[in-house]
C-alpha cells in the first residue's frame, strides 16, 4: 500500500529538476516540447486521478483542458492578470467537471466512456460554432504570456513550477483520507459504501478535481502556444490523454510523467516517416500495450517482482 510512496515522488521531482536545467543545452523547439510535456503531464495527472485512482472512465478531459485554455485566453484578452485567469480556469473546470460527474453516478465503464465522449464532442461544437465568444474556427491569437515569464525558457520554468506544485498537491491528496476513498471507489464501491465512504460525493469529487487539473493545464497551454482554436481540444486529444495515462500505467503516481513523455517524444522521433508517422505511432502504442497492458510501470513492477525486488507501487486495496 505504497502507491504514492516517497520513491515515486522523488522520481517525479528528479524528472522536473532535470527538465528545468535542460534548456541550457536545448534548441528553442526542444524548450517548447519540454513545456508541452509539463502541460500534458498536468492534464494527464488529472485524468489519472479520475481514471487510474478513482476508476471513473473519462473521455472528457480534452474538453476540460479546452475550457481552461479558452477561459485564460478570453480573460487575458480583457487585461485580467494571469494569476486571476488561472484561478478562474481552475474553478470553471472544477464546476463543469462536477456536473460531468453526475452521469457516473448512474452508469459505469463503457457507458461512461460514451457519455464523456459525447460531452467532449458537444464542447468542441460549441467552441467551433459560437464565434461571438470563442472566435470560431479562426480561434484566438496573440495570447499574452505573463510579463515576468515572456521568454520561452522563463515560461518553461513557470510550467515546471506549476507541475511541481500539482505533483506535490496530488501526492498529498493521494495520501490523505480522500485519496484512500478514491481507491476504495475503484476497488470495490459497495464495500466502500458499507464502510461509510460517501460514494456519491467522492465520485463527483474525482471528476471535479481531475477536471480542475485539466483546467490548470489549459490555462498554461494557451499562453504557451499563444494561439488556440477548437481542434486541439477535440476527441482526439481526450484519446491521446487516455493513452498517456494507460501507457504510463493507470493508477501509478509516476504514470502520467512517463506517458506524457512518450506522447510528446515518440511522434517527434517518428517524424522521419513523414506521412505515415501517425500510423506507426498508433502501431507502437498497440505493441506497447500488448507487451505491457498495465503500462510501463506495471511492466517494471512485474520485472521487479520476478527478481524478488520491491513490488507494489500501485495501490491495491
Amino acid at each position: 500500500m505504497a502507491h504514492s510512496s516517497g520513491r515515486s515522488l522523488a522520481a517525479s521531482l528528479l524528472l522536473i529538476a532535470l527538465a528545468s536545467v535542460l534548456p541550457m543545452v536545448l534548441q528553442p523547439y526542444g524548450i517548447y516540447l519540454l513545456s508541452l510535456w509539463a502541460v500534458y503531464t498536468i492534464a494527464a495527472i488529472g485524468l489519472n486521478l479520475t481514471l487510474g485512482f478513482a476508476g471513473q472512465m473519462s473521455l472528457a478531459h480534452a474538453a476540460f483542458v479546452g475550457i481552461g485554455a479558452y477561459c485564460t485566453a478570453l480573460l487575458g484578452a480583457h487585461g485580467v492578470p494571469f494569476p486571476a485567469t488561472l484561478l478562474a480556469a481552475t474553478l470553471l473546470a472544477y464546476g463543469v467537471g462536477w456536473c460531468v460527474g453526475y452521469p457516473a453516478l448512474r452508469v459505469q465503464g463503457h457507458y461512461l466512456a460514451f457519455v464523456t465522449l459525447a460531452f467532449t464532442t458537444l464542447v468542441f461544437l460549441v467552441l467551433r460554432n459560437e464565434a461571438w465568444l470563442t472566435g470560431g474556427i479562426a480561434g484566438i491569437s496573440n495570447i499574452a504570456r505573463p510579463r515576468l515569464f515572456a521568454t520561452p525558457t522563463a515560461y518553461l520554468r513557470l510550467c515546471l513550477a506549476a507541475l511541481l506544485a500539482v505533483s506535490l498537491a496530488v501526492w498529498w491528496l493521494l495520501r490523505s483520507p480522500w485519496g484512500r476513498a478514491f481507491i476504495a471507489l475503484r476497488e470495490n464501491p459497495i464495500r466502500a459504501m458499507s464502510l461509510g465512504v460517501d460514494v456519491r460525493r467522492y465520485t463527483l469529487l474525482a471528476f471535479a478535481i481531475g477536471a480542475a487539473l485539466g483546467g490548470i493545464a489549459g490555462a498554461f497551454y494557451a499562453p504557451l502556444v499563444q494561439y488556440i482554436e477548437p481542434s486541439p481540444f477535440a476527441l482526439g486529444f481526450s484519446i491521446n490523454l487516455l493513452m498517456m495515462v494507460v501507457i504510463g500505467g493507470a493508477g501509478y503516481f509516476l504514470g502520467p510523467f512517463l506517458g506524457a513523455l512518450i506522447a510528446v517524444l515518440l511522434p517527434e522521433w517518428l517524424r522521419f516517416l513523414h506521412d505515415v508517422y501517425l500510423a506507426f505511432y498508433a502501431l507502437a502504442v498497440i505493441l506497447l500495450l500488448l507487451v505491457c497492458p498495465t503500462g510501463l510501470l506495471g511492466l517494471s513492477e512485474r520485472l521487479l517482482a520476478q527478481r524478488g525486488g520491491r513490488p507494489a507501487e500501485r495501490a491495491d486495496a
Binding site: 472512465m57 493507470a250 505515415v276 500510423a279 498508433a282 502501431l283 500495450l289 500488448l290
Partner: peptide, 28 residues
C-alpha cells in the same frame, strides 16, 4: 485474445489506436 484478460481499458485503447492506424494507413 492477448489483451482481454487485462480488462476493458487496455483493449479499448488498443482498439482506438488500431482505428488511428487503419485511418492513417489507408491515407498513406
Amino acid at each position: 485474445d492477448p489483451m482481454l484478460s487485462h480488462g476493458l481499458l487496455p483493449l479499448g485503447i488498443a482498439a482506438i489506436a488500431l482505428g488511428v492506424a487503419l485511418q492513417e494507413g489507408t491515407k498513406a
